[in-house]
Amino acid sequence: MLVQEDYKTHNHVKFLVNYHFVWIPKRRRKVLTGAISTRIRQIFLELAIEKGWDILALEVAPDHIHLFVSVKPTDTPHLVVKAFKGHSSYYLRKEFPELLKMPSLWTSSYFVSTAGNVSSEAIRKYIEDPHHGSN
């Protein structure tokens, strides 16, 4: 099962909310290289600190981003990805004029999946265990 240190506390809630996001630049252009790749990592780290989120893993490939992030239960996936895409687009396009040639930095699409330290199958088995509800 989960280790107690994995859980976080906020107000009167104990939680573990992890999202895995994947998104791509417009037209899947391979623009996330060199100084742009370095800068996007800095932007993401600064945003995560500001919002109180923990980046668990980050891959910046030339044509896509993989982000595994732990957030508060009040932060919906849509708002989390919007923050990362919006902040990075604003600063990268401001600092790297070559990105202004693109109509927008990111596509409006993204992939999201939830994750924790326990598989869905383990949770289902725990809930369906006949000894679980015994008095």
Rank of each mutant, 00 (worst) to 15 (best):
M1A: 13
M1G: 15
M1C: 12
V3N: 14
V3F: 13
V3T: 08
Q4N: 12
Q4V: 09
D6N: 15
K8I: 02
K8W: 06
N11A: 05
N11D: 13
V13C: 04
K14Q: 14
F15E: 08
L16D: 06
V17W: 04
N18T: 10
Y19Q: 01
Y19A: 00
Y19K: 01
H20V: 03
W23E: 04
R28A: 03
V31L: 09
I36W: 06
I36R: 12
S37A: 15
T38L: 15
R39F: 02
Q42S: 15
F44C: 02
I49Y: 07
I49D: 11
K51Y: 08
W53I: 05
W53R: 13
W53H: 07
D54Q: 14
D54H: 13
I55K: 11
I55V: 04
L56Y: 08
L58G: 03
V60N: 11
V60F: 00
V60R: 09
A61M: 14
D63C: 12
I65P: 04
I65K: 07
L67Y: 05
S70R: 15
P73C: 01
P73L: 03
T74E: 01
D75A: 07
H78M: 09
L79A: 03
F84P: 08
F84H: 08
G86P: 11
Y90V: 02
Y91K: 14
K94I: 01
K94F: 02
E95V: 07
F96E: 05
F96R: 07
F96Q: 06
E98K: 15
L99E: 07
K101Y: 07
K101C: 00
P103L: 12
S104H: 14
L105P: 02
W106R: 07
S109N: 13
Y110N: 05
Y110G: 01
Y110W: 10
T114K: 08
A115M: 08
G116N: 05
N117L: 03
V118Y: 11
A122P: 12
A122T: 15
A122H: 13
R124M: 10
R124T: 06
E128K: 14
H131M: 10
H131K: 11
H131P: 03
H132C: 09
S134E: 14
